[in-house]
Amino acid sequence: MANNNDSRPQDDALVNVNDNKEVIDSAPDTPTTAPKKEKSSGNGLLWFVVVILFLLVIGLAGAGYWYYMQQQTERLSSLDTQQKNTVALQSMEQQRAQLTDKIDAITQRNNALADTVSALKAENETLALQAESALEQIKNMEGRRPADWLIAEADYLVRMAGRKLWLENDVRTAILLLVNADKRLKSLADPSVLPVRAALAADIQTLQQLNPVSPSSVALALTGMIAQIDKLPLDAFEKPKDVNAQDNTLSESTDDWQENLAKVWQSLVDDLFTVKTIEGPVEPVLSLEAQFLIKEQLRLQLMHAQSAALKGDAGLYGQSLQYAQTLLIEKFDIEASQVTGFVSALQNLLNTEVSRPIPSELQAQKPLEGLLDSRVKQVFGQGASAL
């Protein structure tokens, strides 16, 4: 540019020879100095913008890298938690399968026992018919101790009490049968039957001291509670409301353009960056898998307690209910009415005694059989042996 400006004054000097030299010399100076200043100012502004853009690109790249690392960390943590939950679920499935096998075995034993009970009931009916026939024979006998048939009836009632006690666990009916047997012997007004009546009184007292709670009623109560587990609310984390949140709704008035512009800018900033302050302990968010595992653990413990109640195992029964109560308090919303009622029902079951040490034999059975042999069979022979 300096060379071009220098050539122009030379051409002007050739055309206008008489022009002043100072004018010719000053002509190139004026156009050369002004463009240089404008070019220097434009280059500085361009470099400033380039530097700002470069810093913005570096900042965005750093923020993106930080966000990517955070996402990777959260993803690895989520995968680790999912693997742990999967292992726990598999373990629970195995325990549940084992418990199902045990329940199936118990069901088979119960079916076999039911068949045995049915056979014994048929035998009892046969024996009852035979007893009625023998008693009819006793009534038809003349002059041969007409009151001795009461001993046979008492023996029959004692044997029926034993069957009710050991096969059906029906303590109440067994007590009633023993009381009726004692009444039969009492009606004899014979001092020789007092030792048998004393043994009957001891058996009645022993049965009255047994636990009156039926294991089947406890098991049915636990079955009803198991069906209500899915309706119990868990103590899950709920996102709190932001009381300091600003209303970014735009106004329709054109006079509020400055406020609308500020709200738009604030909305853009909130979408890019979020800063929250949390006071107090942070509660973890329960996933669907974790919620399922917690409810399955509670259901499994109640099923353990149900099986223990049927077996009369007081230790396992109490331990299972204690663990179930701990799960309810720690994992469920204890302020909800359903959970409160569930905990109260569990506490009532914990206070219920399920063990029933039923005696293996009745004290009055052998003495009464001996009395029957000595006083009835010797008199009536084959007719009494059918009893």
Rank of each mutant, 00 (worst) to 15 (best):
M1H: 09
P9I: 15
P9S: 15
D11Q: 14
D11H: 10
N16E: 08
N16R: 04
D19N: 13
N20H: 09
E22V: 13
I24F: 12
P28K: 14
D29S: 11
T32D: 11
A34K: 07
A34E: 09
A34Y: 05
A34M: 05
K37P: 00
E38S: 11
S41N: 06
S41L: 08
L45D: 05
L45F: 08
L46M: 04
F48T: 10
V51Q: 07
I58P: 09
G59M: 11
A63P: 03
G64T: 02
Y65N: 00
Y67K: 12
M69H: 09
L76I: 15
L79I: 11
D80C: 03
Q82G: 08
Q82Y: 06
K84L: 07
A88V: 00
R96V: 01
R96M: 07
L99M: 03
T100Q: 11
T100N: 12
K102R: 14
I106Q: 15
T107V: 14
Q108Y: 15
N111H: 12
A112C: 02
D115M: 08
T116I: 04
S118Q: 03
L120H: 01
A122C: 00
E123T: 03
E125D: 06
A128D: 08
L129V: 05
Q130R: 04
Q137K: 12
I138Y: 11
I138P: 01
G143P: 00
R144L: 15
I151C: 09
L157N: 04
V158M: 01
R159A: 13
R163K: 07
K164C: 06
L167C: 03
E168L: 11
R172I: 06
T173P: 07
T173R: 05
A174M: 01
V179G: 04
N180K: 10
A181V: 02
A181H: 03
A181T: 02
R184S: 05
R184C: 03
S187E: 09
L188H: 01
D190I: 00
S192Q: 10
R197V: 00
A202C: 02
I204F: 09
Q208G: 08
L210W: 07
N211V: 02
S214F: 05
S214M: 05
A221N: 04
L222F: 00
L222G: 01
T223M: 02
M225I: 03
I229T: 06
K239Q: 11
K241G: 07
D242A: 05
N248Y: 05
W257A: 11
A262C: 04
K263E: 04
S267M: 13
F273Q: 14
P281Y: 00
V282T: 05
E283A: 10
L286K: 11
E289R: 03
E289T: 12
A290D: 12
I294T: 11
R299T: 13
R299G: 14
Q301F: 14
M303S: 14
M303W: 13
Q306G: 10
A308W: 01
D313Y: 08
L316I: 10
Y317H: 09
G318D: 13
Q322F: 10
I329C: 06
I334H: 08
I334Q: 12
L346I: 06
N348L: 04
N348E: 04
N351T: 07
T352A: 00
V354A: 00
V354Q: 00
R356Y: 02
P357Q: 13
P357Y: 13
I358W: 03
P359Q: 14
A364H: 07
E369D: 13
L371M: 11
D373Y: 12
R375D: 12
R375Y: 13
K377Y: 13
K377P: 05
G383A: 15
A384D: 02
S385Q: 14
